[in-house]
Amino acid sequence: MSLLEEALCGDKNAAYDQAAKKVLSQKKILAFILKRMVEEFKDESVQDIMTKYIEGTPLISQVPVHPDETNLEYERIQGNNTEDGSISEGMVRYDILFQALVPKTKEPIMLIINIEAQGRANPGYSILKRATYYASRMVSSQRGRDFYGDDYDKIKKVYTIWICMNAPKDMGNSINRYRMTEERLHGKYHAEQWQYNLLNVVMLYLGNRKTQDKLIEMLRIIFKEKASALVKKRQLEEEYGIRLTEDETKELSKMCNLSEGVYDEGVSEGISQGISQGISLEREASLRNLMKNTGWPLEKAMQMLNIPSEEEARYKEILKKEGELSS
Protein backbone atom coordinates (compact mmCIF):
# COMPACT_ATOMS: atom_id res chain seq x y z
CA MET A 1 0.00 0.00 0.00
CA SER A 2 1.36 3.46 -0.93
CA LEU A 3 1.81 6.37 1.47
CA LEU A 4 -1.27 8.03 0.02
CA GLU A 5 -3.41 4.94 0.45
CA GLU A 6 -2.22 4.58 4.05
CA ALA A 7 -3.17 8.19 4.74
CA LEU A 8 -6.58 7.88 3.10
CA CYS A 9 -7.59 4.91 5.25
CA GLY A 10 -5.78 5.81 8.47
CA ASP A 11 -8.84 5.33 10.69
CA LYS A 12 -9.44 1.83 9.31
CA ASN A 13 -5.77 0.99 9.82
CA ALA A 14 -6.09 2.01 13.47
CA ALA A 15 -9.25 -0.07 13.89
CA TYR A 16 -7.60 -3.07 12.22
CA ASP A 17 -4.55 -2.66 14.46
CA GLN A 18 -6.73 -2.75 17.59
CA ALA A 19 -8.71 -5.75 16.33
CA ALA A 20 -5.48 -7.62 15.55
CA LYS A 21 -4.21 -6.98 19.08
CA LYS A 22 -7.41 -8.41 20.54
CA VAL A 23 -7.05 -11.57 18.46
CA LEU A 24 -3.39 -11.94 19.38
CA SER A 25 -4.04 -11.37 23.10
CA GLN A 26 -6.24 -14.46 23.39
CA LYS A 27 -4.52 -16.86 25.76
CA LYS A 28 -4.89 -19.72 23.28
CA ILE A 29 -2.72 -17.79 20.81
CA LEU A 30 -0.30 -16.42 23.41
CA ALA A 31 0.38 -19.93 24.72
CA PHE A 32 1.67 -21.03 21.29
CA ILE A 33 3.91 -17.96 21.13
CA LEU A 34 5.34 -18.57 24.61
CA LYS A 35 6.08 -22.22 23.94
CA ARG A 36 8.05 -21.38 20.80
CA MET A 37 9.69 -18.10 21.82
CA VAL A 38 10.25 -18.22 25.58
CA GLU A 39 12.77 -20.79 26.76
CA GLU A 40 11.13 -21.21 30.17
CA PHE A 41 8.05 -22.74 28.49
CA LYS A 42 9.60 -24.93 25.80
CA ASP A 43 8.94 -28.19 27.71
CA GLU A 44 5.39 -27.28 28.78
CA SER A 45 2.17 -28.12 26.95
CA VAL A 46 0.23 -25.34 25.28
CA GLN A 47 -2.76 -26.20 27.49
CA ASP A 48 -0.73 -25.84 30.71
CA ILE A 49 0.81 -22.57 29.56
CA MET A 50 -2.65 -21.21 28.81
CA THR A 51 -4.37 -22.38 31.99
CA LYS A 52 -1.60 -22.47 34.62
CA TYR A 53 1.05 -19.92 33.77
CA ILE A 54 -0.43 -16.89 31.98
CA GLU A 55 -1.74 -14.67 34.76
CA GLY A 56 -4.81 -12.46 34.64
CA THR A 57 -6.09 -10.81 31.48
CA PRO A 58 -3.51 -9.39 29.07
CA LEU A 59 -3.59 -5.58 28.91
CA ILE A 60 -4.13 -4.13 25.43
CA SER A 61 -2.82 -0.63 24.62
CA GLN A 62 -3.17 0.53 28.23
CA VAL A 63 0.26 0.77 29.86
CA PRO A 64 2.44 3.71 28.73
CA VAL A 65 6.04 3.10 27.68
CA HIS A 66 7.79 6.31 28.67
CA PRO A 67 9.14 7.24 32.15
CA ASP A 68 6.83 8.87 34.75
CA GLU A 69 3.80 7.34 32.98
CA THR A 70 4.31 3.58 33.25
CA ASN A 71 3.99 2.94 36.99
CA LEU A 72 1.04 5.29 37.49
CA GLU A 73 -0.99 3.61 34.76
CA TYR A 74 0.13 0.10 35.69
CA GLU A 75 -1.02 0.53 39.28
CA ARG A 76 -4.37 1.95 38.17
CA ILE A 77 -5.19 -1.08 36.04
CA GLN A 78 -6.61 -4.03 37.93
CA GLY A 79 -5.87 -6.63 35.25
CA ASN A 80 -9.05 -6.34 33.17
CA ASN A 81 -9.21 -4.86 29.69
CA THR A 82 -12.11 -2.41 30.03
CA GLU A 83 -11.42 0.07 27.23
CA ASP A 84 -9.95 0.21 23.77
CA GLY A 85 -6.58 1.85 23.26
CA SER A 86 -6.47 4.90 21.01
CA ILE A 87 -3.64 6.15 18.84
CA SER A 88 -4.98 9.68 19.30
CA GLU A 89 -4.34 9.83 23.04
CA GLY A 90 -0.82 11.15 22.50
CA MET A 91 0.75 8.47 24.67
CA VAL A 92 2.91 5.59 23.42
CA ARG A 93 1.65 2.33 24.93
CA TYR A 94 2.69 -1.30 24.93
CA ASP A 95 0.52 -3.28 22.50
CA ILE A 96 -0.05 -6.31 24.73
CA LEU A 97 1.37 -6.64 28.22
CA PHE A 98 0.94 -9.56 30.58
CA GLN A 99 2.69 -11.57 33.26
CA ALA A 100 3.43 -15.29 33.34
CA LEU A 101 4.75 -17.64 36.01
CA VAL A 102 7.85 -19.70 35.29
CA PRO A 103 7.10 -23.44 35.63
CA LYS A 104 8.56 -25.13 38.72
CA THR A 105 9.98 -21.97 40.33
CA LYS A 106 6.72 -19.99 39.95
CA GLU A 107 8.83 -16.84 39.51
CA PRO A 108 6.96 -14.15 37.56
CA ILE A 109 8.29 -12.76 34.29
CA MET A 110 6.97 -9.80 32.31
CA LEU A 111 6.07 -10.28 28.66
CA ILE A 112 5.40 -7.66 26.01
CA ILE A 113 3.94 -8.61 22.64
CA ASN A 114 4.07 -5.95 19.95
CA ILE A 115 2.45 -6.07 16.53
CA GLU A 116 4.55 -4.01 14.15
CA ALA A 117 2.51 -3.49 11.00
CA GLN A 118 5.14 -1.44 9.18
CA GLY A 119 5.23 -2.31 5.50
CA ARG A 120 8.68 -0.81 5.03
CA ALA A 121 11.96 -2.30 6.26
CA ASN A 122 13.02 1.10 7.61
CA PRO A 123 10.17 3.17 9.12
CA GLY A 124 12.61 5.98 9.93
CA TYR A 125 14.25 4.26 12.90
CA SER A 126 15.53 0.84 13.95
CA ILE A 127 12.65 -1.38 15.11
CA LEU A 128 15.20 -3.53 16.93
CA LYS A 129 16.44 -0.53 18.93
CA ARG A 130 12.84 0.39 19.75
CA ALA A 131 12.21 -3.16 20.98
CA THR A 132 15.32 -2.95 23.19
CA TYR A 133 14.10 0.35 24.61
CA TYR A 134 10.71 -1.19 25.44
CA ALA A 135 12.38 -4.09 27.25
CA SER A 136 14.66 -1.72 29.16
CA ARG A 137 11.68 0.39 30.24
CA MET A 138 9.89 -2.68 31.58
CA VAL A 139 12.92 -3.45 33.71
CA SER A 140 13.46 0.08 35.04
CA SER A 141 9.76 0.64 35.72
CA GLN A 142 9.79 -2.23 38.23
CA ARG A 143 11.58 -0.02 40.75
CA GLY A 144 9.05 1.25 43.26
CA ARG A 145 6.50 -1.33 42.17
CA ASP A 146 8.14 -4.76 42.28
CA PHE A 147 11.26 -3.90 44.24
CA TYR A 148 12.40 -1.09 46.50
CA GLY A 149 15.74 0.39 47.46
CA ASP A 150 18.64 -1.93 46.70
CA ASP A 151 16.61 -5.14 46.49
CA TYR A 152 17.64 -5.73 42.85
CA ASP A 153 17.29 -9.52 43.17
CA LYS A 154 13.53 -9.04 42.76
CA ILE A 155 13.83 -7.65 39.23
CA LYS A 156 11.68 -9.73 36.88
CA LYS A 157 12.95 -11.07 33.59
CA VAL A 158 11.47 -9.34 30.54
CA TYR A 159 10.64 -10.57 27.04
CA THR A 160 9.53 -8.27 24.27
CA ILE A 161 8.33 -10.15 21.19
CA TRP A 162 7.77 -8.22 17.99
CA ILE A 163 5.65 -9.59 15.16
CA CYS A 164 6.38 -7.74 11.93
CA MET A 165 3.45 -8.57 9.69
CA ASN A 166 4.65 -6.98 6.45
CA ALA A 167 8.31 -7.95 6.39
CA PRO A 168 10.34 -7.51 3.19
CA LYS A 169 10.92 -10.67 1.15
CA ASP A 170 14.50 -11.17 2.36
CA MET A 171 13.37 -10.99 6.01
CA GLY A 172 10.10 -12.95 5.77
CA ASN A 173 9.59 -16.17 7.76
CA SER A 174 12.53 -15.43 10.07
CA ILE A 175 12.82 -15.47 13.85
CA ASN A 176 15.76 -13.75 15.59
CA ARG A 177 16.44 -13.60 19.32
CA TYR A 178 18.68 -11.13 21.17
CA ARG A 179 19.67 -11.44 24.82
CA MET A 180 22.50 -10.81 27.25
CA THR A 181 25.20 -13.45 27.42
CA GLU A 182 28.39 -13.75 29.43
CA GLU A 183 31.73 -13.43 27.65
CA ARG A 184 34.55 -14.68 29.85
CA LEU A 185 37.68 -12.69 28.99
CA HIS A 186 39.99 -14.06 31.70
CA GLY A 187 39.85 -16.51 34.57
CA LYS A 188 37.50 -19.38 35.35
CA TYR A 189 34.59 -17.67 37.08
CA HIS A 190 31.10 -17.94 35.61
CA ALA A 191 28.15 -15.92 36.94
CA GLU A 192 24.81 -17.66 37.24
CA GLN A 193 22.59 -16.81 34.29
CA TRP A 194 19.69 -15.54 36.40
CA GLN A 195 21.83 -12.60 37.48
CA TYR A 196 22.22 -11.07 34.03
CA ASN A 197 19.78 -12.69 31.57
CA LEU A 198 17.03 -10.14 32.14
CA LEU A 199 16.46 -8.56 28.72
CA ASN A 200 15.19 -10.70 25.87
CA VAL A 201 14.13 -9.34 22.48
CA VAL A 202 12.57 -11.63 19.86
CA MET A 203 11.83 -10.44 16.32
CA LEU A 204 9.43 -12.51 14.22
CA TYR A 205 9.05 -11.53 10.57
CA LEU A 206 5.99 -12.92 8.78
CA GLY A 207 6.34 -13.71 5.09
CA ASN A 208 3.77 -14.35 2.36
CA ARG A 209 4.86 -17.89 1.53
CA LYS A 210 4.05 -21.03 3.52
CA THR A 211 6.69 -22.35 5.91
CA GLN A 212 7.44 -25.45 7.97
CA ASP A 213 7.77 -23.42 11.16
CA LYS A 214 4.56 -24.14 13.06
CA LEU A 215 4.31 -20.79 14.87
CA ILE A 216 5.06 -18.60 11.85
CA GLU A 217 2.57 -20.59 9.77
CA MET A 218 -0.14 -20.20 12.41
CA LEU A 219 0.39 -16.42 12.55
CA ARG A 220 0.53 -16.25 8.77
CA ILE A 221 -2.86 -17.96 8.58
CA ILE A 222 -4.34 -15.51 11.11
CA PHE A 223 -2.88 -12.29 9.75
CA LYS A 224 -1.75 -12.81 6.17
CA GLU A 225 -4.06 -15.27 4.41
CA LYS A 226 -6.91 -13.78 2.39
CA ALA A 227 -9.65 -16.00 3.77
CA SER A 228 -12.85 -15.64 5.79
CA ALA A 229 -12.90 -15.90 9.57
CA LEU A 230 -14.76 -19.23 9.35
CA VAL A 231 -12.07 -20.70 7.08
CA LYS A 232 -9.34 -19.49 9.43
CA LYS A 233 -11.25 -20.78 12.45
CA ARG A 234 -11.45 -24.24 10.86
CA GLN A 235 -7.72 -24.20 10.02
CA LEU A 236 -6.80 -23.23 13.57
CA GLU A 237 -8.95 -26.01 14.98
CA GLU A 238 -7.84 -28.75 12.57
CA GLU A 239 -4.14 -27.90 12.37
CA TYR A 240 -3.43 -26.46 15.84
CA GLY A 241 -6.21 -27.68 18.10
CA ILE A 242 -7.27 -24.10 18.83
CA ARG A 243 -11.04 -23.93 19.33
CA LEU A 244 -12.32 -20.38 19.32
CA THR A 245 -15.38 -19.38 21.32
CA GLU A 246 -18.22 -17.42 19.73
CA ASP A 247 -16.82 -14.11 21.06
CA GLU A 248 -13.30 -14.97 19.91
CA THR A 249 -14.63 -15.84 16.46
CA LYS A 250 -16.36 -12.46 16.32
CA GLU A 251 -13.05 -10.71 17.02
CA LEU A 252 -11.36 -12.73 14.28
CA SER A 253 -14.21 -11.91 11.88
CA LYS A 254 -13.96 -8.20 12.72
CA MET A 255 -10.22 -8.24 12.02
CA CYS A 256 -10.71 -10.05 8.69
CA ASN A 257 -13.43 -7.63 7.58
CA LEU A 258 -11.32 -4.62 8.52
CA SER A 259 -8.36 -6.09 6.67
CA GLU A 260 -10.41 -6.30 3.46
CA GLY A 261 -11.88 -2.85 4.06
CA VAL A 262 -8.49 -1.21 4.58
CA TYR A 263 -7.19 -2.64 1.31
CA ASP A 264 -10.28 -2.12 -0.83
CA GLU A 265 -11.07 1.36 0.41
CA GLY A 266 -7.44 2.42 0.22
CA VAL A 267 -7.19 1.34 -3.42
CA SER A 268 -10.52 2.70 -4.62
CA GLU A 269 -10.27 5.98 -2.76
CA GLY A 270 -6.64 6.35 -3.76
CA ILE A 271 -7.58 5.97 -7.42
CA SER A 272 -10.46 8.44 -7.16
CA GLN A 273 -8.24 11.03 -5.46
CA GLY A 274 -5.59 10.56 -8.12
CA ILE A 275 -2.53 8.61 -7.11
CA SER A 276 -0.98 9.94 -10.31
CA GLN A 277 -0.62 13.34 -8.64
CA GLY A 278 2.69 11.97 -7.46
CA ILE A 279 4.86 11.55 -4.42
CA SER A 280 4.38 15.17 -3.33
CA LEU A 281 0.67 14.57 -2.67
CA GLU A 282 1.45 11.27 -0.95
CA ARG A 283 3.86 12.96 1.41
CA GLU A 284 1.44 15.79 2.15
CA ALA A 285 -1.36 13.36 3.01
CA SER A 286 0.99 11.17 5.04
CA LEU A 287 2.23 14.15 7.04
CA ARG A 288 -1.32 15.20 7.87
CA ASN A 289 -2.28 11.66 8.88
CA LEU A 290 0.84 11.10 10.97
CA MET A 291 0.44 14.39 12.85
CA LYS A 292 -3.23 13.68 13.53
CA ASN A 293 -2.74 10.11 14.75
CA THR A 294 0.39 10.63 16.86
CA GLY A 295 0.23 14.25 17.98
CA TRP A 296 3.75 14.78 16.64
CA PRO A 297 4.86 18.25 15.49
CA LEU A 298 5.44 18.75 11.77
CA GLU A 299 9.23 18.64 12.16
CA LYS A 300 9.18 15.16 13.71
CA ALA A 301 6.61 13.88 11.20
CA MET A 302 8.83 15.05 8.32
CA GLN A 303 11.84 13.37 9.93
CA MET A 304 9.96 10.05 10.30
CA LEU A 305 8.94 10.17 6.62
CA ASN A 306 12.50 10.99 5.53
CA ILE A 307 11.41 14.13 3.69
CA PRO A 308 14.45 15.91 2.17
CA SER A 309 15.48 19.04 4.09
CA GLU A 310 15.22 21.20 0.96
CA GLU A 311 11.48 20.35 0.72
CA GLU A 312 10.56 20.98 4.38
CA ALA A 313 9.77 24.69 3.94
CA ARG A 314 7.35 23.94 1.07
CA TYR A 315 5.33 21.42 3.10
CA LYS A 316 5.26 23.78 6.07
CA GLU A 317 3.85 26.55 3.85
CA ILE A 318 1.24 24.23 2.29
CA LEU A 319 -0.06 23.09 5.68
CA LYS A 320 -0.14 26.67 6.98
CA LYS A 321 -2.26 27.77 4.02
CA GLU A 322 -4.67 24.91 4.62
CA GLY A 323 -4.98 25.79 8.31
CA GLU A 324 -3.20 22.66 9.49
CA LEU A 325 -0.52 24.73 11.25
CA SER A 326 -0.63 27.92 13.26
CA SER A 327 1.27 30.88 11.82
Rank of each mutant, 00 (worst) to 15 (best):
I175M: 15
Y125K: 08
S140F: 07
R184M: 09
R177K: 14
P123S: 03
G124L: 00
G119W: 03
S140I: 05
Q142M: 08
E107V: 03
G172Q: 14
D146V: 05
K156W: 01
D153C: 08
K106V: 00
K188E: 11
L185N: 08
H190E: 09
E182N: 07
E116I: 01
H186M: 08
W162T: 14
R120C: 01
D146F: 13
D170G: 03
P108A: 06
R137V: 00
K104A: 11
W162V: 15
V102Q: 11
Q142Y: 12
Q118S: 15
D153W: 03
A191N: 06
I163L: 15
A117R: 08
I127Y: 01
A191I: 09
K106D: 03
T132N: 13
M171I: 05
K154F: 08
I127G: 02
Y125M: 15
I112H: 04
L128Q: 12
E183H: 09
R120K: 12
P168H: 10
K154C: 06
D150L: 10
N173R: 09
L128V: 08
M180A: 13
Y189V: 15
P123A: 07
Y133G: 04
W162G: 01
V158S: 05
G144M: 07
S136Q: 06
I109P: 01
K129H: 11
V139F: 03
I161E: 00
M171D: 06
Y189N: 13
T181H: 14
R120L: 00
K129N: 07
D150W: 12
S136D: 03
C164Q: 14
G172K: 11
G149I: 06
T105R: 05
I175G: 04
G144E: 05
Y159S: 02
I175R: 14
M138Y: 12
H190M: 12
D150E: 13
K129A: 10
L185W: 09
R137L: 06
L185D: 10
T160I: 15
G149D: 01
D153S: 14
Q142R: 04
P108Q: 13
K104D: 12
A117P: 07
E182H: 14
G119C: 02
P103G: 12
W162M: 10
R137C: 03
N122V: 07
R145E: 00
M110T: 10
M138S: 10
M138H: 11
R184T: 13
I115K: 03
T132I: 12
A117Y: 02
I127F: 01
S136W: 00
K106M: 12
G187D: 12
T105F: 07
H186L: 15
R145D: 01
Q118M: 13
I155Q: 10
N114A: 14
N176S: 14
G144C: 07
W162K: 00
S140H: 02
R179G: 02
F147R: 05
S174R: 15
E182V: 03
G144D: 08
R177D: 04
M110S: 08
R143V: 03
G119P: 00
Y125S: 03
V158F: 09
